Amino acid sequence: MAKSQDTFTKRERERQRLKKQMDKKDKMLERKTNKEKGKSLEDMLAYVDENGNLADKPADPRKKQVFRKEDMMIAIPKMEDIPVDLLRTGTITFFNYDKGFGFITDHVSQESIFVHTSELTFNARENDKVQFNIGKGPKGPVATNVEAFKP
């Protein structure tokens, strides 16, 4: 009598393959039975609440805020707002001699202003008090005529 050619592992693999097929058919049948045909438009809509999160219900109209597009600014403020001729005082918060630039914090507006090494009249270090004028640069205000502060 001849022995069967099927080994244990072959039978086990075949059993697993059949189980996968059955699971796949069961899932497909379940999807078909639970399919929601003819959803209403209200069920398909998604709303955005006042915080920008998706919600099932529309946002409360009492919390609605109205913005005018004229009031919105998506850019660097125009240089017309900054008086150019005033002599200002500030503190050097960062300076890198290797790269040749730094930043000054204005004492009045607390604004960070770019300064290039060519505008300095002395050897500047961080935390030095300086006097300077403000000029227009390609990316915003720049410090010009930077001198050590003499009270």
Score class of each variant (00 low, 15 high):
109 S>K: 12
88 R>Q: 08
118 S>K: 14
45 L>R: 15
146 V>E: 09
63 K>G: 15
145 N>G: 05
31 R>Y: 08
87 L>Q: 05
117 T>P: 00
14 E>F: 04
58 P>N: 06
5 Q>F: 09
23 D>Y: 00
44 M>Q: 10
86 L>T: 15
151 P>H: 06
43 D>F: 01
128 D>P: 05
80 E>A: 07
73 M>K: 15
12 E>D: 04
95 F>N: 03
90 G>R: 06
12 E>R: 07
92 I>M: 05
144 T>I: 09
101 F>E: 05
68 R>M: 06
134 I>T: 14
78 K>G: 13
131 Q>W: 00
81 D>G: 04
16 Q>T: 03
117 T>C: 10
60 D>V: 15
55 A>E: 11
46 A>H: 10
12 E>W: 04
8 F>E: 12
128 D>H: 11
111 E>N: 14
93 T>L: 04
78 K>T: 07
77 P>F: 04
120 L>C: 07
144 T>D: 00
83 P>K: 11
14 E>M: 07
9 T>K: 13
107 H>P: 01
33 T>R: 14
76 I>N: 13
151 P>L: 06
107 H>N: 12
21 Q>T: 05
75 A>R: 14
25 K>G: 02
9 T>R: 13
118 S>Q: 12
117 T>I: 12
79 M>E: 10
99 K>V: 02
53 N>A: 09
27 K>Q: 08
111 E>V: 12
72 M>N: 08
31 R>F: 08
24 K>S: 07
111 E>R: 15
73 M>W: 02
9 T>H: 12
99 K>S: 04
17 R>H: 09
95 F>Y: 15
30 E>F: 10
1 M>G: 13
40 S>R: 03
78 K>P: 08
93 T>D: 03
137 G>Q: 01
112 S>N: 11
132 F>W: 08
3 K>M: 14
124 A>G: 12
42 E>H: 06
74 I>N: 13
105 T>Y: 02
148 A>G: 02
63 K>Q: 15
83 P>C: 02
4 S>Y: 03
24 K>W: 00
55 A>V: 13
12 E>A: 08
53 N>I: 02
135 G>I: 05
28 M>C: 01
104 I>W: 06
84 V>A: 06
135 G>Y: 01
39 K>T: 01
106 D>T: 06
123 N>L: 01
146 V>M: 06
8 F>C: 05
70 E>D: 15
74 I>A: 13
20 K>G: 00
104 I>H: 06
87 L>P: 01
102 G>E: 05
10 K>G: 00
107 H>C: 08
12 E>S: 06
111 E>T: 14
27 K>C: 00
142 V>W: 01
119 E>H: 11
35 K>C: 11
18 L>E: 11
87 L>F: 00
107 H>E: 11
131 Q>S: 11
75 A>C: 10
33 T>S: 12
90 G>M: 09
2 A>R: 13
28 M>K: 09
10 K>Q: 10
44 M>S: 02
7 T>A: 03
97 Y>C: 00
37 K>M: 08
64 K>A: 14
45 L>T: 09
135 G>L: 02
117 T>R: 10
68 R>L: 06
40 S>H: 01
4 S>V: 05
109 S>R: 11
91 T>Y: 01
106 D>Y: 10
127 N>T: 15
23 D>M: 05
114 F>A: 06
42 E>T: 11
17 R>M: 05
117 T>E: 07
138 P>A: 09
25 K>N: 10
66 V>E: 12
77 P>Q: 03
110 Q>A: 03
24 K>D: 02
134 I>D: 04
109 S>C: 07
131 Q>N: 02
3 K>F: 11
